[in-house]
Structure formats: structure tokens, C-alpha cells
């Protein structure tokens, strides 16, 4: 054997393999844990769904209240932009339309701008949610049926 030559014993080779294997396992474990922790949770669709349901379930919004609350039955006298703002707030731009009654309201003045802005990024991350619900409309005790079309923007 030459002077200064380096010799790797069988046992050293074995240890290199063991350490490499341990690093690979630790790396894999770190990757899995990090992926799980850093995952993105998107609940926009649920927020939109619950916001829309509140409109016809809650008497604070549009649900008719004759002693008891009638879910799904809209009191047309409550169907105003002011009440919509008080009920839902301004966090999520909303546009509502009662098809047969031909009434459209929104909680913000510039809904169209919010809609256009949302449409730009809607393909990457959905922000516009639409819903249609068959509702009854009470107008001074006279009941008719209608479709409530709702659009909610949740960014």
C-alpha cells in the first residue's frame, strides 16, 4: 500500500449506506409533514353557500316572520338593498334577483366592478359563486312562487 493512500473499510461503507438511508427517510418524512402543514384550505364555496342560505332562512334578512319564521318564504317588503347590507354586511359583494318579480338588488353600489375583477382571476381560483333557489314570495299576505338567483363574490 502506497504512503498516504486512503482505504475505506467494509464497515465504513456500510455506515455510509446507513447514514444515506437515514437522510433519505428523514427527508421523505419532512416532505410529507411539510406538505400536510402547508396545504391550502379553501372554504370559499362554503362561505358563499352559507351566506346565500342566510338570505332566505333568517328573518334578519328576507325570510317572512308571521309569529314563526317561514324559511324559504321571502317577505317582498324586506327585499331591499339597505336590509341586505344590514343582514350580510359588505364583506362579500352580492347580487340578488327575484326572477318573476323582476327585482334586482346588491349590497354594494359597484357590484359590476367587483364582478369584472373576480372574473379576471376566477380561472385560477374560483371567487364567483352562483345559486338558484325556488322560493315563495309573500306580498301583503298574497303568496306567489319565484326563483331567487344569487351571485356572491368571495375573494
Amino acid at each position: 500500500m502506497k504512503k498516504g493512500a486512503y482505504m475505506i473499510s467494509g464497515e465504513t461503507l456500510l455506515w455510509i449506506n446507513r447514514i444515506l438511508l437515514t437522510i433519505i427517510i428523514l427527508g421523505a418524512v419532512f416532505f410529507v409533514v411539510n406538505s400536510a402543514i402547508a396545504r391550502e384550505i379553501n372554504i370559499n364555496e362554503s362561505i358563499a353557500d352559507l351566506t346565500i342560505r342566510k338570505l332566505y332562512y333568517s328573518s334578519e334578512c328576507f325570510a317572512l316572520q308571521n309569529v314563526v319564521i317561514e324559511p324559504g318564504e321571502i317577505d317582498i317588503s324586506k327585499f331591499t338593498e339597505e336590509r341586505l347590507r344590514n343582514c350580510i354586511g359588505l364583506n362579500y359583494p352580492i347580487k340578488l334577483e327575484l326572477e318573476n318579480n323582476e327585482k334586482t338588488i346588491s349590497n354594494i353600489e359597484n357590484y359590476r366592478d367587483a364582478f369584472n375583477l373576480c372574473q379576471v382571476g376566477n380561472k385560477q381560483k374560483q371567487c364567483l359563486f352562483k345559486s338558484q333557489q325556488y322560493v315563495l314570495v309573500s306580498n301583503n299576505g298574497k303568496v306567489s312562487y319565484d326563483i331567487l338567483k344569487a351571485e356572491v363574490i368571495v375573494q
Partner: peptide, 25 residues
């Protein structure tokens, strides 16, 4: 894991549509 975990909208309306249909004048 790269896929975004999204909440699924509850598509059932709890029977509201049928209740309203039966109450339609």
C-alpha cells in the same frame, strides 16, 4: 398533496325546495 383541499358545497337544500313546492298556491 399539491392539490388544494376544497370544501364541497352542500348541494342539498334540506328539503326546502319540496316544502316550497307543496306550499305553492
Amino acid at each position: 398533496i399539491s392539490e388544494i383541499i376544497t370544501s364541497k358545497k352542500v348541494s342539498n337544500d334540506g328539503g326546502l325546495t319540496l316544502k316550497n313546492l307543496m306550499n305553492t298556491p
